[in-house]
Design a protein around this nucleic acid. Structure first.
Length: 117
DNA sequence: CTTATGACTTTCA
DNA sequence: CTGAAAGCCATAA
């Protein structure tokens, strides 16, 4: 059974994102590494983008805590016309995560909030 | 089949 | 600390 390593890539991403507990975050690179493709951090971002609103086809829509996935610098990388970084920040705050705001961008203290799988 | 496109990361200045 | 540049690689077209 030839399983190319990219088979189910998005599914694997979603499966891991679902595991991030409330009040914690994970990075794109961290997720990528966990599915044996440590250089595919960007593709993890693709998976998050694909699932968002206007994409009824993709899996468990509202069940996926996409807001908990951020970049390696602890910043929010979201770029979606329908969902802004501010909205993501708000969602995270509601989960008890403190965000430091600087010039319209937000930063999370990974030392505190990074989830260890 | 080939190209283009980036919710990224790391390195270096 | 910031930012540019290069590398990465699953999808979309």
């Amino acid at each position: 059974m030839t399983q190319h390593r990219s088979d189910n890539f998005f599914s694997k991403v979603y499966a891991l994102v679902e595991q991030i507990p409330r009040g914690k975050v994970a990075t794109y690179g961290q997720i990528a590494a966990l599915i044996s493709t440590p250089r595919a951090a960007r593709q993890v971002g693709y998976a998050m983008r694909t699932y968002l609103p206007n994409r009824p086809t993709t899996p468990p829509d509202h069940t996926i805590p996409w807001q908990r996935v951020i970049n390696a610098k602890g910043r929010l990388s979201i770029q979606n016309p329908h969902v802004t970084a501010r909205e993501q920040a708000e969602r995270l705050r509601q989960e008890g995560i403190a965000l430091e705001e600087r010039d319209g961008s937000y930063r999370v203290d990974l030392e505190k909030y990074l989830h260890r799988f």
